[in-house]
Simulated scan of single mutants.
Amino acid sequence: MTLRRLVMIAGVVVLLAGAIALLMPVSVPGPDANIGCGNALVADLSEAREADSRNLANLPIVNEIVPHTDYVAECESALSSRRAWSIPVAVVGLVILAGSFFIGQRAARGSA
C-alpha cells in the first residue's frame, strides 16, 4: 500500500468521524428522561423549551425554593461543545484527504 493511499484512507476516516459527530443527536439529562436538542447541524430546542415551561421553578414564589434548571441553555451548551470539536475534526479530515492528492504528484515528479 502506498503512502498516498494510507494518507487518503486516514483523511476519509477522520472526515467521516467529524461528519458522523455532526449528525448524531445531542441530548441533555432531563427531569424524567433525556431531552433531545437536535444535532450539531440543526438545533431543535422545542423539547427543551417545553421542559422549561413545565418546570415548577417558573412560578415566582417557588423559584426561590426550587432550583431552576434551564434546559434550553444546557442544550445550547451541549450543541456548542459538539460543534467545537466535530467541525475541526471534519476540516482536518478534509485537509488530509486533499493533501493525499498532492503527495502522489510529488512522489511521481521526484522519481521521474
Rank of each mutant, 00 (worst) to 15 (best):
T2F: 08
L3G: 15
L3W: 12
R4D: 11
R4E: 12
R5Q: 09
M8N: 11
M8W: 10
M8V: 11
M8P: 05
I9T: 11
I9H: 04
A10R: 01
G11F: 05
G11W: 05
V12Y: 05
V13R: 06
V13Y: 04
V13G: 00
V14F: 06
V14W: 03
V14I: 12
L15A: 14
L15K: 07
L15D: 01
L16R: 12
L16E: 09
L16H: 06
L16C: 14
A17Q: 04
A19H: 03
A19Q: 09
I20P: 01
I20C: 10
A21K: 05
A21M: 09
A21C: 08
A21Y: 02
L22D: 06
L22H: 04
L22W: 00
L23W: 10
V26W: 05
V28N: 03
G30M: 01
P31G: 14
D32E: 13
A33W: 11
A33N: 15
N34C: 00
I35G: 00
G36D: 15
G36V: 01
C37L: 10
C37F: 08
N39C: 07
N39E: 08
N39T: 08
A40W: 04
L41D: 07
A43R: 09
D44I: 00
L45Q: 08
L45C: 01
L45W: 06
S46I: 09
S46C: 07
E47Y: 05
A48H: 02
A51V: 03
D52H: 07
N55F: 05
N55T: 02
N55I: 02
N55H: 12
A57T: 02
A57M: 04
N58Q: 14
L59M: 13
L59C: 06
P60D: 09
N63E: 10
E64S: 13
E64N: 13
E64A: 13
I65F: 08
V66D: 07
V66E: 11
P67G: 03
T69Q: 11
D70F: 03
D70N: 15
Y71R: 02
Y71S: 09
A73T: 12
A73C: 07
E74A: 14
C75N: 07
C75E: 01
C75F: 03
S77Q: 15
S77V: 10
S77A: 15
A78I: 08
A78N: 05
L79N: 06
L79R: 01
S80A: 15
S81G: 00
S81Y: 08
S81F: 08
S81T: 14
R83K: 11
R83G: 12
R83L: 09
A84I: 02
S86R: 06
S86G: 10
P88A: 04
V89Y: 03
V89Q: 07
A90G: 13
A90S: 12
V91K: 03
V91N: 05
V92F: 09
G93I: 00
L94F: 07
L94K: 07
V95C: 11
V95P: 00
I96C: 09
L97R: 06
A98M: 12
G99P: 05
F101Y: 15
F101H: 13
F102N: 00
I103S: 10
I103N: 02
I103R: 08
G104Q: 11
G104T: 10
A107E: 15
A107Y: 12
A107P: 03
A108V: 13
G110P: 02
A112M: 11
